[in-house]
Design a protein around this nucleic acid. Structure first.
Lengths: 212, 212
DNA sequence: TGGTCTCCATCAAGCGATTGACTGGGATAC
DNA sequence: GTATCCCAGTCAATCGCTTGATGGAGACCA
């Protein structure tokens, strides 16, 4: 492992590539653009991170690691009940709002049937979904929703919100507006309670709950 | 989808391009691949549909038209109540399952800030969302969810399901499995009722026990 | 101390391949 | 004869990637 110094060329390349891959996709991002943006020669990029595909897989691996780390930290202090799940949900929204490039990178994973990408899904996404679904089952009341789909609902909505926001008359409202994030979070809280079978009247009083 | 003649080269090109753009994205699809897949020479493709960008915009326009047509037909016979919204929701799921290329094409729209793509959003997506949100408001009971986010929730989930399905031990389960589609549809029905304030335990605060 | 050598990081230049777009001309239909 | 449709060929630009050369830092020896 190399030093995590901000001047480390390899780290700078990975950071730049993460941003570009998330914005323009794999095919829409050229190695020359990555090199230019990082202020390096194209050969230097190859020297540090290998080919484009290798760089892309590194970026994806890092993104998934960060996602798992954030959720692991949150899950460690969450009970298997409605309040605990709400905190886990908040942690996920916080993470995706702070790192919108991660949901953006998921898209390409979905679009790809490549073996290395499917491998990433097996090592990161699936265990996370299964573990959380188990928590949902433990916390669910009568009339609760399908646990697996409850988890997917939160993921789909959070990714959708963080990537595109909500189309409005004045363009899309999304993660750039803290008030909109609070509104989205309140909606997710209500959804969380409803899917656990706790009914719409049992949500967070005030419905806000926006943190950080 | 209206196809004047299956032998019409222009229609064949558009159909092929729709499939390829949906699968590989704009940058991942070359005009040569489109021509090859359609069994035509590149120059013939250019002759019929102009340049790549023009073809892409035509594909997007068609996709949105088809989506709107399906929803217009469904909305015409739906009352502004929970049952009506559930039928509208069913129509949307039916459409997306039958034409998974449409949700797939949305992704690139989200990823693009280009003026012509933003224009598509203004002419198709936004009016559809606003009109449906109005229906939700009319059908909503006490404690209903934020109407706009209720609509987006259905869209996000349907697109997520139709594009990627649910990761499971044996790969992703999605639209290829009718049983899985039924399971997803049941989940959306429950979600629909819950977001309208008609969910289980409605009006019985604290019915579930676990609270924040 | 000075000289030589070996790594490491970086660069300009160029590789073959592919991209989107264009051309002139042949085939067919009316 | 004219208009429509289609193709092989070609173009400049760009793609991912590799090469050979360069300069600096440290190790080693006399």
């Amino acid at each position: 492992m190399t030093s995590p110094s901000p001047d480390d060329p390899r780290e700078r390349i990975i950071a730049v590539a993460t941003r570009l891959f998330a914005s323009f996709g794999y095919d829409g991002t050229s190695t020359r653009l990555i090199a230019e943006t990082a202020g390096l020669n194209i050969a230097t990029v190859a020297y540090h991170v290998g080919g484009k595909r290798d760089l892309y897989l590194t970026v994806m691996e890092r993104a998934h690691q960060a996602e798992r780390a954030a959720l692991d930290a949150a899950a460690a202090s969450c009970a298997a009940d409605a309040a605990g799940l709400r905190r886990l949900l908040d942690a996920y929204v916080d993470f995706c709002v702070a790192h919108p490039e991660v949901p953006a990178l998921w898209v390409h994973r979905w679009q790809s049937d490549a073996a290395d990408i499917a491998d990433l899904e097996g090592r990161y996404a699936r265990p996370l979904i299964e573990r959380t679904a188990e928590l949902v089952r433990a916390a669910a009341g009568d009339g609760a929703a399908d646990a697996e789909y409850a988890v997917m609902t939160v993921i789909w909505c959070t990714h959708g919100f963080c990537r595109g926001g909500v189309p409005g008359p004045d363009g899309r409202r999304g993660i750039d507006d803290p008030a909109e994030v609070a509104r989205f979070r309140a909606h997710l809280h209500r959804l969380n309670d409803a899917m656990l079978g706790l009914g719409p009247g049992c949500g967070v009083p005030g419905g806000g709950g926006a943190r950080a």
